[in-house]
Design a binder for these strands. Structure first.
Lengths: 241, 241
DNA sequence: CGATTGAATTTTGCATGCAAAAAACTATAT
DNA sequence: ATATAGTTTTTTGCATGCAAAATTCAATCG
C-alpha cells in the first residue's frame, strides 16, 4: 500500500501553484498533535508505531521522524527501546508549566501595552464585547473562543515572534488539560472582571498593571485545572475500588 | 559498513549496569548541536545528509531523525526537498530572541530571589569572587565560565524545570553568537557592577530589583553581540569588494 | 498456587533501496 | 555570449528489511 490515498487528503488542488508542499512527516506531526491536544490520545497512552502507521496509512520512517519532533516539543516521551507515550504531567510539573506560562503571558502583556496600535486595541475591545454577549447567552464555546482570541491578539501585539512561538509551544503542553477544564462552568464574574481590568490597563498603556493582571489570571486558570484534575483522580480511585 | 566502531565510542564498559543506553540519534543530536553552538557549523551552512553520514559514520535514518529534532529546537531549518541548513538569524530575530531571553531571565531571577536557600546564595557569592579573581588575572575563559555558572545557579534556584528547559533551549539559539562575542574584551567594569547589584538584590530578597537588573544586563549583552555582528558584516563586505 | 526460567512473539532501532524532486551540466539556438 | 531546453547527476523523501532489545507466554520447579 502506497500513501496515495493519504496524500490525496492533504494535497492541494491539481491546478495552480502548489504554494508550499507539505511533507508527510510534517502533516503527521500536526495530526498527532491535534490528537493529543484534543484529548483523543490521553496522557500516558502508549504510542505503538505499527498501529499508528496503519491508522495514518504511512510507513514507519516519517512516523518516527514525527515522533522525534513531538518529543522535542515535550508532548510525548520516548524511552530507548520502549517506544513513545503521551506525556503525563505530575501536579508539580503542571504547576511549574503554568507558572512559566504566567511569566510568558505577563511579559507579552507588558510589551503589548507599549506596542499595540489603536486598531488592535479596538479589535480586542470588539472581542471583549462579543465575549460578554456569549456570556449572557450561556454560549460556552463562543465564550472560550473569544477569550482565546483576545489572548492571541495580545501576544501578537507584543511584536516578538520568538516569544510568540515559545508561548504557543508551552501552551500546547497545557492545552489538553485546559480543554477538559473548559467543560466546567467558568467563573464568569471574576473572569469578566479580569478582562475588564485588562482593557483598562491596555488603554492606559500600563504595562506593569496588565502584566500583573495576566499573571494572576493565569494562576486562577491553573487552579481551575487543578480542581478538575483532582476531581478526576477521586473519580478514578472510586472506580478502582 | 556497520556502525560497530561508532558504537564502541559511545558504549559503556562491557560489565555492570548499562545505566542508560543512549540511542544513536540522540548522540547525533548532541554532536551536531555542539558543532552549531561552538561555531564549527556556521549559520547558513548547508547540511548535506550524505556528507554528515560519512563524517559521523552512521546511516541516514538516525541522522534524519536528529535533524528533525534540531529543527524543532530552532537550531537548523529544513526546507522541503532542499535539505537542512544552520539557522541564520536576521538582526530583527536576534533582537527578538534576546528580548525573550531577557524576559525569561528576569522572571527566573524574580522567582530565585524568593526561593533561593542561604547555601545557594553562598555558592553564588563564592562564584562572584572567583569571577573577580579571574578579572584581575585577565583570565577570560575563567571569567566567562563563572559568569555562566552564576546565571545557571540563579536559574536553578527558581525551582521551575519547565522554565529552566525553555531558558536552555532559547539560550542555545543565541549561544553560537555569544560564543563569538566572548572573544571580545568584556566591559569588565559595568558587568562587575551589575553582578554586584545582583548580589545585593538577592541578599535583600528583592525579586523586582533583581529582575530589572537581569533584564538590563541581558540587553547590554545583546548590544555587545550586535556590535560584533555588524563589525563582521563590514569585514565581509570589504572582503567581497 | 506463585515464582522463575526459557522460548516465541512483538516492537524498536538502524541500514538500505527506490522513486521523485532539485541541482548541475551540456548542447543548441538566438 | 547569453538564454533556454534537455539530459545527467545528486539529493531528498519514504518504504522496507533485518537484527537487537523488550515483552509476552508457557512450562517447569519450589
Amino acid at each position: 500500500m502506497q500513501n496515495s490515498d493519504f496524500d490525496a487528503g492533504v494535497a492541494a488542488s491539481p491546478l495552480m501553484p502548489k504554494v508550499e508542499r507539505q511533507r508527510l512527516h510534517d502533516t503527521v506531526v500536526e495530526h498527532i498533535r491535534r490528537f493529543i491536544v484534543e484529548g483523543v490520545l490521553e496522557p500516558g497512552k502508549k504510542l505503538n508505531e505499527r498501529e499508528l502507521c496503519e491508522t495514518l496509512g504511512i510507513s514507519r520512517t516519517p512516523l518516527r521522524e514525527a515522533l522525534k519532533v513531538l518529543a522535542a516539543e515535550g508532548l510525548i516521551e520516548i524511552s530507548p527501546n520502549r517506544g513513545a507515550s503521551v506525556s503525563k504531567m505530575s501536579e508539580a510539573e503542571l504547576r511549574e508549566t503554568f507558572e512559566l506560562m504566567s511569566g510568558l503571558e505577563a511579559f507579552s502583556g507588558e510589551l503589548a501595552a507599549e506596542r499595540m496600535t489603536a486598531a488592535e486595541l479596538a479589535e480586542i475591545k470588539a472581542l471583549h464585547y462579543a465575549m460578554l454577549a456569549c456570556r449572557t447567552q450561556n454560549d460556552l464555546a463562543g465564550y472560550y473562543s473569544r477569550n482565546q482570541a483576545i489572548h492571541d491578539k495580545i501576544n501578537e501585539a507584543a511584536r516578538n515572534s520568538a516569544l510568540r512561538q515559545t508561548y504557543v509551544a508551552v501552551n500546547r503542553r497545557l492545552q489538553a488539560l485546559r480543554f477538559r477544564s473548559n467543560f466546567q462552568i467558568p467563573k464568569w464574574d471574576s473572569a469578566i472582571h479580569d478582562h475588564d481590568e485588562m482593557l483598562k490597563a491596555l488603554e492606559a498603556r500600563d504595562g506593569k498593571k496588565l502584566s500583573a493582571i495576566l499573571r494572576q489570571h493565569l494562576l486562577d486558570k491553573r487552579d481551575a485545572v487543578l480542581q478538575v484534575q483532582s476531581r478526576e483522580d477521586v473519580a478514578a480511585s472510586v472506580l478502582k475500588a
